[in-house]
Measured scan of single mutants.
Amino acid sequence: ASVAVIAAGTQGNIFATSALRSMRFLQILRMVRMDRRGGTWKLLGSVVYAHSKELITAWYIGFLVLIFASFLVYLAEKDANSDFSSYADSLWWGTITLTTIGYGDKTPHTWLGRVLAAGFALLGISFFALPAGILGSGFALKVQEQHRQKHFEKRRMPAANLIQAAWRLYSTDMSRAYLTATWYYYDSILPSFRELALLFEHVQRARNGGLRPLEVRRAPVPDGAPSRYPPVATCHRPGSTSFCPGESSRMGIKDRIRMGSSQRRTGPSKQHLAPPTMPTSPSSEQVGEATSPTKVQKSWSFNDRTRFRASLRLKPRTSAEDAPSEEVAEEKSYQCELTVDDIMPAVKTVIRSIRILKFLVAKRKFKETLRPYDVKDVIEQYSAGHLDMLGRIKSLQTRVDQIVGRGPGDRKAREKGDKGPSDAEVVDEISMMGRVVKVEKQVQSIEHKLDLLLGFYSRCLRSGTSASLGAVQVPLFDPDITSDYHSPVDHEDISVSAQTLSISRSVSTNMD
């Protein structure tokens, strides 16, 4: 405001104040949320940038038409019409005319000016109207692209899951042992070998009828009888010197917790746990005396209480009078009846079946994303299906024409109403129809010849004498029936064969 007042002088105070007050009108834009329509302006900018070359070309040609039209109309009207006294007036008329506004304040009066105005109007309006069409088509394409992008975003994750499931299904095939990355992934998420051994031990116990592997080994086996189970490696608790092959000598807290839970599941009659010990102070733990958990001091820290809870689970003690015997301790020893080589084939089979199920689920979810969402998608899918159906029908028609023997030239002739090819031409065609016709002709010829021969033979049998045999009239074959199959017997006289037959029969009768 200060700059405006200084620039306008003393009389500019009122002007500056009114100008600043008129800017209050811009507050109405906040009512229509114009300040939060950044996406709309961004869309407009992207459309203009995408079609910038077309817009520049249309505007450039339109500007050239405007300059030439205004100049030529000015030359034609400057002497006869006072409205075109300057080139600026003519340029104003050209702008209003070519933009199809047409105020009518300035019009050419001479015939030359009117002809020039009409010609440049028809030429220039087309170029001035091009930017509107370019922007409209650009907006339509952009909206369609955003629509497809939205659908693509919805299909991206199911497609990625389907590709991942397909690759993992491919890589978990037993015949592709060189693909090891997927197996490394499952090695990292699978439970430890100790848990798998416990699982298979329970399965084997159920197969043995509820007997433990130790009891199965204690059962008497006759001499020479084959053992029911192959000899396997035996594993004891981590306190002993022997372990399962492939295990580490260090046992983690999870393994100890699972070991304690498995020992508690063996039965309360074979294992008696004394009350857990509780320390009397955060600094020292008295293991010899058993106290109640309700006497825990409230001033303990979080670490002390955590250690106390761990001691409740991981440090059970047995009383002296209830101490288990050596046999019970041997039964409680952890027996590992299986090795990694025995378990891994079954584990890989389970993983393979899981990968198949996940692949089928991913495939079903991806197919669900291909379903249409709204009416536009339904129409688009219907149009695509219609085009596909037309293509299939056209391909089927082409194959039928190839089989029947109607080529493209014959199809055009039928469409024009011309006469089709004759039967002889159809026979000569190298097509399925021509071959079928040729075979039918040959079969008819053979059938006719057989009928003639059978009739001749029956007449010979009825006559009974050589004289009557020679008097029999043998009809000749019709050459038209034989089609294109020409037998060497067709052109010979059958009477010669009949005479030869009669001579042979007379000779045979004389010999008798």
Rank of each mutant, 00 (worst) to 15 (best):
Ser242Cys: 05
Tyr186His: 07
Leu396Gln: 02
Ser283Ile: 08
Lys298Glu: 15
Ser192Cys: 02
Ser395Arg: 08
Arg435Cys: 13
Ala166Asp: 00
Arg218Pro: 13
Thr482Asn: 11
Ser506Pro: 06
Met344Leu: 11
Ser248Cys: 04
Ala413Pro: 05
Arg217Leu: 09
Val328Gly: 04
Pro268Ala: 05
Arg371Gly: 14
Val340Met: 11
Pro282Ala: 11
Val361Glu: 08
Ile403Thr: 13
Ile481Leu: 11
Ala219Glu: 13
His236Asp: 15
Thr306Pro: 10
Lys254Gln: 07
Arg352His: 02
Lys394Met: 00
Pro191Gln: 08
Pro226His: 13
Ser495Tyr: 05
Ser395Ile: 05
Val472Leu: 06
Tyr485Cys: 13
Ser458Ala: 09
Cys336Ser: 13
Leu452Met: 08
Asp187His: 06
Val400Gly: 13
Phe366Tyr: 02
Leu476Arg: 07
Lys363Gln: 06
Ile430Thr: 10
Arg435Gly: 04
Arg305Leu: 15
Gly409Arg: 10
Asp480Ala: 04
Gln381Pro: 13
Gln335Pro: 07
Ser487Ile: 12
Asp304Asn: 15
Gly252Cys: 13
Tyr457Asp: 08
Ala413Gly: 10
Arg256Leu: 06
Lys332Thr: 07
Ile253Phe: 07
Ile343Met: 11
Ser301Asn: 03
Arg237Gln: 10
Leu461Met: 04
Gln444His: 08
Gly391Ala: 09
Glu195Val: 10
Arg435Pro: 12
Ser283Cys: 11
Arg205Gln: 07
Asp187Tyr: 08
Ser431Thr: 12
Val496Ala: 13
Lys441Gln: 07
Leu199Met: 07
Ser242Thr: 14
Thr398Ile: 14
Glu215Gly: 05
Ser458Trp: 14
Ser240Asn: 12
Val472Gly: 10
Asp490His: 10
Ala413Ser: 14
Thr482Ile: 05
Thr398Pro: 05
Asp423Gly: 13
Asp173Val: 01
Pro293Thr: 11
Ala362Ser: 08
Asp223Glu: 13
Val287Ala: 02
Arg307Ser: 15
Pro475Ser: 15
Tyr178Ser: 10
Ser301Gly: 14
Phe243Val: 14
Leu196Pro: 06
Arg265Leu: 02
Ile351Met: 08
Ala290Gly: 14
Glu425Asp: 10
Pro213Arg: 07
His486Pro: 08
Gln263Arg: 08
Glu327Gln: 09
Val221Gly: 12
Ser227Thr: 10
Leu314Val: 13
Arg317Gly: 11
Gln444Glu: 12
Ala166Thr: 13
Gly252Val: 06
Ser495Pro: 08
Met174Lys: 09
Phe366Val: 15
Ser487Asn: 10
Leu179Met: 12
Tyr457Phe: 11
Lys298Gln: 15
Asp490Glu: 03
Ile354Phe: 11
Glu337Val: 13
Met344Arg: 12
Gly288Arg: 15
Leu312Arg: 10
Asp322Asn: 15
Ser249Ile: 15
Phe456Cys: 14
His236Pro: 08
Leu476Val: 06
Gly420Val: 06
Gly210Ser: 11
Ser192Ala: 12
Thr398Asn: 08
Lys394Thr: 00
Gly407Val: 11
Ile403Asn: 02
Tyr184Cys: 12
Glu429Gln: 11
Glu380Asp: 02
Ser269Pro: 13
Ser458Pro: 13
Asp377His: 03
Ile354Asn: 08
Thr180Lys: 07
Gln473Arg: 03
Val328Ile: 11
Asp374Val: 01
Arg459Leu: 10
Arg256Gly: 15
Pro421His: 04
Arg256Ser: 13
Leu314Pro: 07
Gln402Glu: 09
Gly455Val: 13
Asn208Asp: 13
Gly455Asp: 08
Asp374Tyr: 01
Leu453Val: 09
Leu452Pro: 13
Pro231His: 14
Ser319Phe: 02
Leu501His: 05
Glu380Ala: 11
Arg364Gly: 12
Ser325Ala: 14
Glu415Asp: 04
Arg505Ser: 15
Asp512His: 03
Ser502Ile: 06
Gly455Arg: 04
Gln397Leu: 15
Gly267Asp: 09
Gly409Trp: 07
Ala219Ser: 13
Val347Leu: 08
Gly434Ala: 07
Ser508Arg: 04
Gln271Arg: 04
Leu370Gln: 02
Leu469Val: 12
Ser240Thr: 04
Pro316His: 01
Ser269Tyr: 12
Lys365Glu: 10
Leu360Gln: 01
Glu327Lys: 05
Glu195Lys: 07
Gly417Arg: 08
Glu285Gln: 10
Gln381Arg: 06
His272Asn: 08
Ser284Cys: 07
Arg411Trp: 02
Asp223Ala: 09
Asp428Asn: 15
Leu190His: 11
Glu415Ala: 14
Pro268Arg: 15
Val375Met: 15
His486Tyr: 04
Ser383Thr: 02
Lys365Arg: 08
Lys419Asn: 10
Pro279Thr: 07
Pro268Ser: 15
Arg399Trp: 06
Glu440Asp: 05
Val489Met: 14
Ala219Gly: 07
Ala274Thr: 03
Gly470Val: 10
Ser483Pro: 04
Ser506Ala: 04
His202Asn: 12
Arg462Ser: 01
Leu360Arg: 11
Asp255Asn: 12
Met278Leu: 10
Asp322Val: 15
Arg217Gln: 09
Asp374Gly: 01
Val496Ile: 05
Ala290Val: 14
Ser301Thr: 02
Ser325Pro: 04
Phe243Ile: 13
Ser333Arg: 09
Arg228His: 03
Pro245Leu: 10
Ser175Thr: 08
Ala362Gly: 05
Glu285Val: 14
Pro479His: 09
Lys441Glu: 09
Arg237Trp: 11
Asp418Val: 07
Glu289Val: 13
Met432Leu: 14
Val216Ala: 10
Val437Asp: 12
Glu440Gly: 13
Val443Leu: 14
Leu190Pro: 13
Pro276Ala: 10
Ser422Ala: 07
Ser395Gly: 03
Ile503Phe: 03
Met432Ile: 15
Leu169Met: 13
Ser188Arg: 15
Ser463Phe: 13
Tyr485Ser: 04
Ser269Phe: 14
Ser497Pro: 04
Ser508Cys: 13
Val489Leu: 09
Ala310Thr: 14
Lys298Thr: 06
Val203Leu: 05
Arg414Gly: 02
Ile430Phe: 10
Ser292Asn: 11
Ser422Cys: 09
Gly464Asp: 07
Gly246Glu: 11
Tyr178Cys: 12
Ile189Met: 11
Pro475Leu: 03
Tyr185Asn: 10
Asp341Gly: 14
Ser299Ile: 15
Ala498Thr: 07
Arg258Pro: 13
Asp451Tyr: 04
Arg505Gly: 05
Lys416Gln: 04
Thr465Ser: 07
Ala274Pro: 14
Arg392Gly: 01
Ala471Pro: 04
Gly417Ser: 08
Asp401Ala: 12
Arg317His: 04
Ser495Cys: 09
Pro275Arg: 10
Pro279His: 11
Met259Thr: 04
Asp428Gly: 12
Asp451His: 14
Ala166Val: 08
Ile379Ser: 13
Glu447Asp: 15
Gly455Ala: 14
Thr318Asn: 03
Leu452Val: 10
Pro372Ser: 02
Ser281Phe: 05
Arg313Lys: 14
Ala362Asp: 10
Gln499Glu: 09
Val404Gly: 07
Ser249Asn: 09
Lys363Ile: 10
His236Leu: 10
Ala323Thr: 15
Cys460Arg: 12
Ser353Thr: 13
Arg256Pro: 15
Gln442Arg: 15
Thr339Ala: 12
Arg414Pro: 07
Ala219Val: 09
Lys298Met: 07
Asp490Gly: 09
Ala471Asp: 05
Met433Arg: 08
His386Pro: 13
Arg265Pro: 09
Ala329Val: 04
His448Gln: 11
Thr241Pro: 08
His486Arg: 10
Gly464Cys: 07
Thr465Pro: 04
Tyr457Ser: 07
Ile354Thr: 12
Arg305Cys: 14
Arg218Trp: 09
Ser383Pro: 15
Gln473Lys: 07
Arg205Leu: 11
Phe477Ile: 09
Glu289Gln: 05
Val328Glu: 14
Ser262Tyr: 11
Arg264Trp: 05
Ala274Ser: 04
Met174Ile: 07
Met389Val: 02
Glu326Gln: 03
Arg212Trp: 07
Val489Glu: 12
Thr266Lys: 15
Glu326Lys: 13
Ser269Ala: 14
Gly385Asp: 11
Ser422Tyr: 15
Gly470Cys: 04
Thr349Arg: 14
Glu326Asp: 11
Thr500Met: 08
Pro345His: 01
Pro230Ala: 05
Asp341Val: 05
Ser261Gly: 11
Ser422Pro: 13
Asp304Tyr: 15
Glu195Gly: 11
Arg371Leu: 09
Ile351Val: 09
Leu314His: 13
Leu357Ile: 06
Thr180Pro: 08
Arg414Trp: 05
Ile481Val: 05
Cys460Gly: 14
Pro222Thr: 05
Gln335Lys: 05
Arg258His: 05
Ile189Thr: 10
Asn208Thr: 09
Arg317Pro: 15
Thr280Ile: 15
Val350Ala: 11
Val232Ala: 11
Asp377Asn: 03
Ala384Ser: 14
Asp418Tyr: 06
Leu190Arg: 06
Arg307Leu: 11
Lys363Thr: 14
Tyr229His: 14
Pro275His: 06
Arg258Leu: 03
Val437Leu: 10
Leu198His: 13
Ala177Ser: 07
Pro276Arg: 04
Gly434Arg: 11
Asp410Asn: 14
Val474Leu: 08
Val216Glu: 13
Arg168Leu: 02
Asp484Tyr: 12
Gln335His: 05
Ser487Thr: 04
Tyr457Cys: 07
Glu321Lys: 11
Leu387Arg: 12
Arg176Leu: 13
Ser508Ile: 04
Trp183Gly: 11
Val426Glu: 06
Gly464Val: 04
Leu273Val: 15
Ser284Thr: 07
Ser171Tyr: 02
Arg309Trp: 11
Phe302Val: 05
